[in-house]
Each structure stands twice: as C-alpha cells, then as structure tokens.
Write a protein that binds this DNA or RNA. Structure first.
Lengths: 366, 366
DNA sequence: ATGAAAGCGCTAACAT
DNA sequence: ATGTTAGCGCTTTCAT
C-alpha cells in the first residue's frame, strides 16, 4: 500500500504546516483563516489564502474530525435506493443534511437485518452525527433489544439513532422518531372503498412480520369493523412488497380465489403488479373491480386508470428525521433530550381506480 | 460544542489505550487483533476481544484514516436520487462499494455545476477512494478545465475521478471513464421507426447543452441521414428531461405543430409526459402515432401501451465505475494507469408503442 | 492578532 | 508474539 501522505507522483500533499510555512505564519493562523471563527488581519488572511491556492491545499477532514470537530456526516440505512419509497425519504435526508452542510452516507440492506446492524456499526465508527433507520422492520424481541444497545452506544458518543417510519424500541432507548399515520391511511382508504359500497375487499398485504404491514392491516381491519363488515380471512393475502408478488398473487386469486369486488394493495408497487394481472385476465378497473394502493409514489399516476392511493409525506419524513436531531446554530435546549417524536399525517388521494361494485371476480375453481 | 471524546453522560468513550490497559496488553496488540493482519496468540486475542466488548469499544474511523489507512469511502455525485436513471447507477455503485467493504457518500447537485464542484471538493477533503460523477454535463470549456484540475488534485492524493456516462476531459486529465453507447442506441431506435415506415419523426430532446442530449440527437440524425430522410428542424424540440416538459411540449405540438407520425422522446420520463398529452388529445398510440423513449427505466413497462425504448445498463455502469478504480486484493498493475475506459452497449427493447404510420398528427394551426 | 505546543485515536515500523 | 514509539493533520488552549 502507498504510504499515507505520499501521492502518485511521490510529492507529499500539502498540509497546514506547509501552508503555514509558505505564508510565513503559524498553523494556528491557517486554521483560523479556514474556519473564520476568530479574527485574522485582512492582509494575513490574503497571504494565507494565496498560499493555500498555490499549494493546492485541501484540508483533511479526518484530521479535523479527530481533533474534535463533528464529522458533519449523517448516515441513512434503507432497504433499496431504487425503491421510490426509500428514495424519496433519502432525498429528504440528503437535502436537509446538505442544508446543514453535511454529507450523507447511504447504506442499502436489501432487507437483511444483519446487514442493518453492520451498517449501524460502520456509521458509528465514522462518528456520524446521526444514523437514520428507514422503513418497517421485523420486531423480533432480540433484534429490538440489540438495536436498543446500538442506540445507547451512539448516544453515548454524542450521536443519535433516528427511527424513520418504524416503531420505537421501548422506553429506555435514546432514539428520535419520525412516524406517519400508517394505520390511519389504511383506515381511510378502506373506508373509502366501503363507502362506495364494497363489502368483499381483497387485501394484498406486505410481509407479515414487517411493522409497516401490520399497521396497514390493522387500519384496514379497524375500518371493516367500524362498518360491521366481517373480516374474511380468505381475503387477506400477505406477501413480499414487490411488483411480481402483486402480479402473481393477483393472478392466482383471479384464477381460484374467493369472490371480491375491490382490491387493497398494501403498497403501490404491489398494486402495479396486481393491475397487470387484472388487465391480462380481462378484469376491468374500476368497472369490474376497484383497486387502491398505498404510498403515492409516481407510478400511481402512470397506471391506467390512475391509482387511488394513500399519500405518505416521504420527503418530509426524511427532512424531519435530520431536523429532529441536528439543530444548527439554535440553542440545544429541547434537542438535548434523547428522545423526540414527530408524527406526520397521511391522506387518501382519489384518482380513477375506484367505482361502486361491479361484476367483481367470482370464484371459478377449476 | 461538546468536547471531543466526551459523551452525553460525561464518561469518556473507550479508545485503544483503554482497551489495551483493560486487557493488559499494548495498543499495538489491540490494533493487531482488530485488523487481523498480524499473528496474535489465541488467548490474547480472546482477552482483547472481551475487553472491547466490555468497554463498548468502537474504533474511530477518522483516527484510522489519519494514520494512513484508506477511508474506505467512495463518493458519488448525481443530479437527483429519485430519478431512476441515477438511482440505478447509484445502486450499482453502492453494491460494488459494499462488496469492497466501502461506504458510499451520495451527493445531489440538482443539476447545478457549481454544486458539483463543491461536492467534489468535500469528497476530496474526506479522502474518498474515488469520486464518481454521473450523467451528462455541460461541456463548457472553462468548466471542463476546472474539472480537469480537480481530477489532477484527486489523483495527486491517490484518489480518482471517474466519469460515468459523460464525456472525457481531454488528453491530460487523469480520469477513468464508463461510457455507454448513447449515440448507437438513438441510431437503433430511430432506425426501428424508419423501418416501420415512419418518415416524419418528432424528436422531443433533452437540454441542448447536456452531452447526453447531444449524443442522442446525433444518433437520431445519423439514422435519418443513413436512410436519406431529410432532417426537418421543425421536428426537433429540445427541453428539460422532465415529465412535465414532455407533457407540455407534446400538448403544444399536437395543438399547433408540424405533422408527424412518430415521436422519439429523449428519455422515458419525457415519453411518459408525452404519452399523457397524446392520450388527452385522443391520439392513439401506436395506432395514430408511434412513441419511443430512452433508458428503459421501470415506468416504460407501466405505460399503456408498454413503451418501446433503449435499454441502458445503468446498474452495471455503476458497478464498473467502482471496479475500474478499486481493485481489491489483486495486483495493481494495470489499474495503476491513471486512465481507463469501459464502454458498455445499449440495445433497443421492443414493446407495444410502435406500429407502422397511422393517421399521425396533422398541423391544425388555429 | 498571532504563535507554541498539546493532544485527538490509531497504525506501523522497529525493538525485543 | 508482543511492546515502544513516532507520527498522521488538524484544532485549540494558553501565552504573548
């Protein structure tokens, strides 16, 4: 390995010491010029800046961080950057971080909790100002306990674990949280279907262990109950949050499933898959069957008919996640408390995929 | 500001020294245990590891980097994380980086070249192993020269500037490059339209100063020329790479534009907007007018009719970008050379949005 | 307004 | 196999 400080062409890179010598000042002065946090004579400043330019000086962020300055970094851990749900949240985080003059370390777990833990560790090693965990997770007892320990460790180092769109870790854990009304959105959209007259609603759910899935299903059930509609277990079909899963589950159920006149897909991606299966089976939306999704990502507007769904303020969640723990300039007072929760609303957005019950899909077991 | 090394509860965080003392060994041994790069007696190792656990020791990546070890970080600079074009490339970068045990700093410029420069600087300060610039850019002379200087500076510090899907910086610049056959894809898809019998093809281009736009337009023109079809300037309409721009430009041209029987949108997003305008105007695709896009991002499969487009190996571009400059383990031989280029192919993917010329859209100026 | 010098936490010679 | 120690490049008291 190349020795530290030695460049490709063998010339050492410039350091504060070099700049100081070149400008005929001390390193302290150079530091003061860079950080503008202390008075420096205009002439001196000029000279130092000229030297920096001439030597092609680039400050070493690691040295700076080691000397006790914040690394100005926030870490964000998501399943998948290409999934719009995460991408929008990531955008919010990135923008708010950039506004606070910070850079963003993005980590993708691909849904693997072990990888999630590993990334938290890596971000802790880099002394990230905050570590933001995004999206639903398995709520396994041991896992939650382990996360609690990590939260503790981060907090002890002056950083913070932020849970964005996922449940808390229990009383003790020093985490901040950004929630959205997941259950409420599911309630609202189910109620919308009910209001149109639907009674047999097929629920194409998410992975059953994910907190997000559970909350949405809970909202759905509460809505049914509120209207006194019996919850038929045959109408609840959990599965992965993927387009292909939506497609396959839907195709299967059209072929040999229970009767239904409406479909509630637990997210828009699953809805897109379901829409294709419906289309291929010649089932017209919304004339024969109504369809709704969840999240309100762009695909909802591209589907035909355009998809009625639940809007989730994804980008805002990302922004709040960083704002919650990183107040720049202002007094630290209330932010010093280790836990803080922000709760954002969701709302239904009505488009063209819902109508009163039509022919529906009838059981036609072979 | 809280003093470095002092945690929330006032207890100092553990350092190698603490671990060493606790385990009754020297700091060197602790380091050797962590890095597994040197023999350590099994018993000693156990003891050290126990101490690390007990003290909740988390290595400080900055101290490590300062001591001369790579920061194991790659920087990626994109326009926008929620744009699938960039998101897929970012995914490739992230995965390849993770495979090489590195973390990924993601920066969004929102299309602003100044911000791009600022991010390059920030990534240099953090001593990223590589800085990957993604997507087309303005090829303004001064700007290219400035980028060249940054490439030089990075290279002098043992890092590398990688241009991913954008033109080189000229002979001298020590950059690596990942290209894709942008011009060729545009040629192929135009030729496809021509083969179907189209002669009046409306070209809904990208921003005229972007290299990506230029290359695509060039391919389009070459295809026309190859078939001896005159290039009508009225049929070339540049504009932003956005859905709304596609929508508005299309609507306007339907209303009061030149005749055409096919539309080539310079990317799928623009195509999605155009498709909506066509739909609203009652122009049927592909019966009345054929439509093609570029990039082959997921929306192409959601549109109805499904969009014929040009596939670009986005994720692979991202992977290659990091692979090109960061070979782990293997000999450095050929990678030592400051410049390297990888060129990836593109290919047309035929779906349902193209047919022989139909009624087309006729000029009906008000 | 500026300088001198003591760390920050780690790694890698160099010793033993 | 393990210990000693000299930096890595910066910030920040404490002097002046």
């Amino acid at each position: 390995m190349r020795r530290a400080g030695t460049s490709q062409d063998g010339r050492r890179r410039a350091t504060v010491t070099d700049v100081a010598r070149h400008a005929g000042v001390s390193t302290a002065t150079v530091s003061r010029v860079m950080n503008r946090n202390y008075p420096v004579a205009a002439a001196t400043r000029e000279r130092v800046e000229a030297s920096m330019r001439e030597l092609g000086y680039v400050v070493n962020a690691h040295a700076r961080a080691l000397a006790g300055v914040s690394a100005r970094t926030v870490g964000i851990v998501v399943n998948e950057v290409i999934d719009p749900f995460y991408a929008y949240i990531a955008r919010g985080v990135e923008r708010e971080a950039a506004a606070g003059d910070r850079l963003c370390l993005v980590c993708c777990t691909q849904g693997d909790p072990q990888r999630e833990l590993a990334f938290i560790e890596l971000l802790h090693q880099r002394r990230a100002d905050a570590v933001i965990l995004v999206g639903g997770s398995v709520q396994d007892r041991d896992y939650v306990a382990e996360l609690g320990r990590r939260a503790e460790a981060l907090h002890a180092d002056g950083s913070r674990l932020v849970l964005c769109g996922r449940p808390g870790l229990g009383e003790g854990a020093p985490t901040a949280r950004v929630e959205y009304d997941n259950e409420g959105g599911a309630f609202a959209v189910t109620d919308h279907l009910l209001t149109q007259g639907h009674r047999r609603i097929l629920y194409l759910g998410g992975p059953p262990k994910l907190s997000t899935s559970r909350d949405r299903l809970a909202g759905h059930r509460r809505a049914l109950k509120a209207r006194g509609v019996a919850a038929d277990p045959a109408l609840v079909r959990p599965g992965p949050f993927s387009r292909s899963s939506g497609y396959h589950r839907m195709a299967e159920l059209i072929d040999a499933g229970p009767d239904f006149t409406a479909v509630f897909a637990a997210n828009d991606i699953v809805a897109a898959g379901a829409a294709q299966a419906l289309e291929e089976a010649g089932v017209r939306v919304p004339r024969d069957v109504s369809l709704v999704g969840y999240d309100d990502i762009p695909v909802a507007q591209e589907l035909r008919p355009r998809l009625t769904t639940v809007h989730v303020p994804l980008e805002e969640m990302g922004r709040q996640a960083v704002r919650l723990v990183l107040a720049d300039g202002e007094e630290d007072d209330w932010r010093e408390q280790p836990t803080g929760v922000v709760r954002l609303g969701t709302h239904i957005v009505v488009r063209d995929s819902v109508a009163p019950p039509g022919n529906g899909v009838r059981a036609r077991r072979s």
